[in-house]
Amino acid sequence: MTKQYTQKLVSYLSVASAVALTVALQAPQAKAASITFTGAGTNTYSGSNNPLGASVTFDDAVNAGKLTIKLENKGPGALAPSDVLTTVFWDYDGSPISFNLDSAVGNIINNGSVTNNFNLLSPSPAQWKLPNVTLPSGGVTQKYGLSSTGLGLFNSAGGTGSPAYGIISGYGSGANNAITTNPYVKDFATFVLSGLPSNFDVTKISNIRFQYGTNLTEPSFGGTNGGGGGTKVPEPATMFGLGLVASGMAMARRRRNFANN
C-alpha cells in the first residue's frame, strides 16, 4: 500500500466520521425515563401536628409502553387516619390519556403482621382505583389520580370514607385503634398503567397533589420535581452514529501511523 493511497484513505475516513458525527448530533434525543416529585407538610387536621412526607416516581422505561408509578409515604409512623396517604393527583401537558390500571402491589401491615406483595386489585372491589368521574371535579384541579378511598371521585375504591389500604410508614407511638387494627400498605405501593400514546413524554407530568385521609379537607400538599426528567439520553440511532465516529477515528489513526512508518 503506497503512502499516497493511505493518505487518501485517511482523508475519506475523516470525512465519513464527520458525516456520522453530524447525523448523531442531529438525531432526536429522548427524555429521561423517570421523574420524581416529593412533598412535605404537617397534619393539623387531627391536632397531632404529625409531620407528613411523600414522594411519587413516574417511570415509562421499567415496563415498555406503560407507566410505572411508585407512591411512598415518607413521614413518621401514623397516629390517626389523617396520617394515611390515600391519593395522588397529577396533570399531563398533552392530549388527554385514557389510562388503564393493570396492576397495583404493596406490602400490607395489619395488626403488626406484614404480608408481602399483596395484590391491591384483588379481592374485588379493587383497593386502589383510577377516578370513575372525569377530572377535574369536586374541588380537584388535576386531571388524573389514583386513590384507595372514595373522595366522591373513586367511589368503588377500597371503601368510601375508609382509609384502609392507604399507605403508612408504620405505627406511631400512641397510634389510635383505626391505625393498629386495619390493613394498610407498608411504606409504598407500585402501580402499572397502560393506555399511553406513542408520543408519551414522562417529563410532561406536573401539578402533583398528595392527599391524606378520606376527605379533601384533610391534609394535602403539592410535590416538587425532586429528580429525573431533565437529563437527555441518546436514542439508539444516535449511539450507533457515535460508534461509527469512534471506529472511524480509531481506524484513521492506525492508517496515519502506518503511512508515517
Score class of each variant (00 low, 15 high):
V233Y: 13
G226S: 15
L153K: 11
T6D: 11
F210D: 07
A16K: 03
Y5E: 15
T141V: 08
S17T: 11
G158Y: 00
W90Y: 13
P123F: 00
I179K: 07
F210V: 06
K129G: 10
V62G: 01
N107S: 15
L130Q: 10
F154N: 09
A32Y: 08
V202P: 09
R255P: 00
L193I: 04
N111I: 00
T44I: 02
G145Q: 08
T44P: 13
Y212T: 06
Y5Q: 15
Y92F: 10
P76R: 02
D59M: 04
G106E: 03
T87N: 11
S98N: 15
S98V: 05
S82W: 00
D83W: 01
G243M: 09
V245R: 05
T160I: 04
N260K: 15
G75F: 02
L196N: 07
S14Q: 12
S82R: 01
T6I: 15
G166I: 09
D83Q: 04
T86W: 01
L71T: 05
T224S: 14
L120N: 03
Y165S: 07
P131I: 01
M239T: 14
L121S: 06
G222T: 11
F58Y: 11
S220K: 09
N225L: 09
G161W: 02
L151F: 15
F99G: 09
K8D: 13
T224P: 05
T203I: 00
M239S: 14
Q127S: 11
P197W: 08
T134P: 07
M239V: 15
G222S: 13
D93N: 15
Y184R: 10
K70F: 00
T87Q: 14
K31A: 12
L216D: 06
G152D: 05
T181N: 14
A16F: 11
A30S: 14
G47H: 03
A54C: 08
L52K: 06
I69M: 11
Y45H: 14
T190K: 09
A80T: 13
G195K: 06
F188S: 15
W128D: 06
S98G: 11
S220N: 15
L216K: 08
G161A: 03
S11L: 13
T149A: 13
G195A: 06
T115L: 06
N43T: 06
